[in-house]
Design a protein around this nucleic acid. Sequence first.
DNA 1: GTGGTCTAGACCACT
DNA 2: GTGGTCTAGACCACA
Lengths: 127, 127, 127, 127
Amino acid sequence: MFQLDLKSRKTIYEQIVDNIKELIITGILKSEDKLPSVRELSKTLTVNPNTIQKSYKELEHQGYIYTVSGLGTFVSPPREIIYDKKNINEIKSRIRNDIKELLYLGLSLDIIKDIVNELFEERSDWK
Amino acid sequence: MFQLDLKSRKTIYEQIVDNIKELIITGILKSEDKLPSVRELSKTLTVNPNTIQKSYKELEHQGYIYTVSGLGTFVSPPREIIYDKKNINEIKSRIRNDIKELLYLGLSLDIIKDIVNELFEERSDWK
Amino acid sequence: MFQLDLKSRKTIYEQIVDNIKELIITGILKSEDKLPSVRELSKTLTVNPNTIQKSYKELEHQGYIYTVSGLGTFVSPPREIIYDKKNINEIKSRIRNDIKELLYLGLSLDIIKDIVNELFEERSDWK
Amino acid sequence: MFQLDLKSRKTIYEQIVDNIKELIITGILKSEDKLPSVRELSKTLTVNPNTIQKSYKELEHQGYIYTVSGLGTFVSPPREIIYDKKNINEIKSRIRNDIKELLYLGLSLDIIKDIVNELFEERSDWK
DNA sequence: GTGGTCTAGACCACT
DNA sequence: GTGGTCTAGACCACA
């Protein structure tokens, strides 16, 4: 399904959340698909079940998945994903700061644009 | 100088690092300017001196400031800031994550491109 | 594991850094080995946990170890150690200073060369 | 005479001691030469007189210079420089560790030898 | 006055 | 249990 990077500064639980989000966004996991059970994923990732549990709860909270007790956990239909203007502005502001920092490091605007376009390329195939 | 946001999820020391970095990047703090002493900033922010020192060490580590023991802490000249792939890749990776998050939020790639281009417009006049 | 020398002019945290580095370099601590937890080492050395943590952070910073919060601290695989000019130049500069000091002590350049060659002999068999 | 590097991690007083030592070793300052007065050097280096004072005391303690009150400070004749076997072994051991570290960083013995020889070249002209 | 180290002890999030 | 942050307060060396 995906791999964890223990050396990353990200928490394991954050990585799981991000990875599953990514799988949903990219369409690898589709609406109403069943996610692996907590125990199952716990085994395949060799990670404490509590950690998986917590990740699922977070994803549920964010609207990406839902749980039917006794049946399992499933991917939510797309419409339920939260669309939040405040949130978008926060992210925009973070990107603004990163651009500033790159400029400060001596990169030219053109080079920075290239870098960002590179990032867009990474995504351009699947959406 | 700046204010801390106690409600933020960021740790105090991270906030201090980010704020000072911002002051340096925007040119409000210039090369060879003296930063407030550990104790001084500690008082004005009502934060423990150890926490300030940790922030200063992190900034020093990142190459933004340097320290003369017994004299104080100063802003590094811009060229000395570590201009290496590691640093740039870190920022690149931050932007990558932000783009992902925008996608999670349901924005299309084209809209995100527009947003980023907007940010570039903001800068195109002053560099 | 190792012992601290309270008489040394080196600070405690420097001694810890140097000792652990030595254990890693000599291969006594191998890649992916778990280091003692902060609290554990704190007890065995009868040193404050903060001091241990500072040492661990410094080692992480230098690329010798990595940390998984909640799990523990581990030895990095060798390739990941920051192999860059900065690191090597630092060591080079240390050796330069040592050569200077030997000259201060009245040794001639030739005698110093002999001493260094002796050190190379020690290694020539095992690498 | 020489320049201080404020960005260095070395203390100012250490730098002064090292620099003057170097001048004596290289023969630029010769036996019985008069050193600048504390006040004078204080001005030319724009450094606190106490710092100069302390440096001179350290150099006197190590046998490199001597003071005649009312007259000034002078370079000691060469024979008085302390020759200390214990000290030499300590330095040797430091170099051994540095070589180990370079090996660990992935450099081959031959490359390390080249590096060290480079350092010897730096000195080969003046002794 | 400056930064640097260290201790003791508390609290938090993650596993 | 693990590491990470933070406070309070002490002591040191250097300028």
